[in-house]
Write a protein that binds this DNA or RNA. Structure first.
Lengths: 215, 215
DNA sequence: CCGTATTCTTACTCCGGAGTAGGTAACGAG
DNA sequence: CTCGTTACCTACTCCGGAGTAAGAATACGG
C-alpha cells in the first residue's frame, strides 16, 4: 500500500514547474489575480507552497510566468495559422480563425490573458500589452500594405493603427460574446467579423467613406 | 484663527457622500479595486474612515455605488445625445459621439467602468455587464431595425447581436487607444469607427458578403 | 438650557494570506 | 556507505488593510 498510496513524489523540476503553471493558470482564471491565493495554487498543483516560491518566485513572478507562457502560445498559434503568401483578406481570415480556435480550445488561458491582465496596472500588463501591441502591429502591417498598394489617401492611412486597435478590440469582445454562445461554430463567428470589418475597410480603401449629413 | 484654520466641518450627509464617491472613483481608477485602500479613499475625501462605512457601507458597497453612478451618467449621456427621429446611421453616429465625448471628459470614470469591472467576477461585474448589455441591446435594436426593413436574410439577421457585441467592443478598445492618442479630435475617431463599422454593416445589408476562397 | 439626533474622530481588533525558517527524505556519484 | 545535492514538507512569522468600539463635538427643537 505504501507504494500506491504514496503520492507520486520526487519529480524533476521541469515537470513540477509545468504542473504549477497549469494550476496557476486555472486558479487565476477562476478567481482573478488578487482573489487567488498561493495556498490554493499549491493545493491544485499538488505541491506545497514553498516549492512554488523556490521554483517560480513570488506571486507576481508566478502570474507573469503564466501570462508569458499563454501569450506566447496564443501568438504562436496565430502566426502558425497564417500563410503569409496568400492575399491580405485571406491572411486576416486565417489569423482570426486561428485566434478564435485558440480561444475556444483554451478558455482558461483566454480568461487569464484578457480579463485579468488589462485591469491590473502592475508589471503584468506590460507583458500582455506587449502581446496586444504585437497583434495590433500585425494587423496594422496588413492594413497598411493594402492601403499603400491601392493608393489610399494620407488621412485614411493615419487611421490604420486606430482601426487595428478597434479590430483587435472587436475580436476580443466577440470572443467574450462567443464564450456565452458556444453553439455558434467558429467559422461562422469569424465570417461575421470578417464581413463587418473587411467590407468596411474595403470601402474605406475604395474611397467610399461615410460622413454625417449635418453637424 | 479658529474659524479659518478649522477644516470645513459638519457638512450634511448628501454632500459628504458625494465627496466620498468622487474620491473613491479617483482612487479606484488609479489603483484598481484591490490595490485601493479605504484609508486612501478617506484621506482623499478628507473624511475619516468610519464615515465611509457609516454612509456607504463596505468596500464592496462603495465600489458598487461608484459603478452605478458612473454607469448611469454614461448611459444618460448617450441617450441624451441621440435624436431617435433621425436616420439609423445618424443615430449611431450621435451615440458614438456622445460616448467618446463622455470618455474624453471623464477618463477616470471610464477607467473604473472599463478596466476595473470586467476582471472582478464579483457582484460588481453584474452592475456593469448590465449596462454593457443595455448598450449592446441599444445597438442591436438599431441594426435589427435596418436589417428587417431592408429585408436582410435570416442568417445575417442572426448575426446582429454578435455584431453589436463586436461594435461595442471595438468602441471600448478604440476608446482605450484614444486615451493614449489624445491629439486626435473626437469627431475623427468616431468617423473612423463609423466608416469601419457602418460601411461594413451596409455591405452586409446589401448582401455584399465576404467569404473565404478555399478552406 | 437640556435632551436627542447627527456628524465626525482617534485608536484600536483581527484575519487572510504572502513569504520563510528549518528540517526530512530520496537520489546519484564516488 | 557517505557525502553532497536536489526535491519536498510542516509550521511558523508578520503585516497591510478591512472593519469597529466608544466617545467627542456640534446643531437644533422644545
Amino acid at each position: 500500500m505504501s507504494v500506491e498510496d504514496r503520492r507520486v513524489k520526487r519529480l524533476p523540476r521541469e515537470v513540477r514547474e509545468k504542473q504549477i503553471l497549469d494550476a496557476a493558470v486555472r486558479v487565476f482564471s477562476e478567481h482573478g489575480y488578487h482573489e487567488a491565493s498561493m495556498d490554493e495554487v499549491s493545493e491544485v498543483a499538488g505541491v506545497s507552497k514553498p516549492m512554488i516560491y523556490a521554483y517560480l518566485g513570488s506571486k507576481e513572478d508566478l502570474f507573469a510566468a503564466c501570462i508569458r507562457r499563454e501569450a506566447g502560445l496564443l501568438l504562436e498559434a496565430i502566426v502558425a495559422g497564417v500563410d503569409a503568401t496568400v492575399a491580405p483578406d485571406m491572411q486576416l481570415w486565417m489569423g482570426l480563425k486561428a485566434f478564435f480556435e485558440f480561444v475556444g480550445g483554451n478558455k482558461q488561458s483566454w480568461r487569464v490573458l484578457h480579463r485579468q491582465v488589462i485591469s491590473q496596472g502592475g508589471p503584468f500588463s506590460d507583458e500582455v500589452l506587449a502581446m496586444r501591441s504585437r497583434a495590433i502591429t500585425l494587423v496594422d502591417a496588413l492594413l497598411v500594405g493594402v492601403a499603400t498598394k491601392r493608393g489610399m489617401d494620407e488621412h485614411a492611412q493615419k487611421s490604420t493603427e486606430a482601426m487595428s486597435a478597434a479590430l483587435v478590440g472587436a475580436s476580443e469582445s466577440l470572443a467574450d460574446w462567443w464564450l456565452d454562445h458556444p453553439a455558434v461554430p467558429t467559422r461562422t463567428v469569424v465570417a461575421w467579423l470578417m464581413n463587418l470589418v473587411w467590407m468596411g475597410f474595403g470601402d474605406l480603401v475604395e474611397g467610399n467613406t461615410w460622413s454625417p449629413s449635418d453637424h
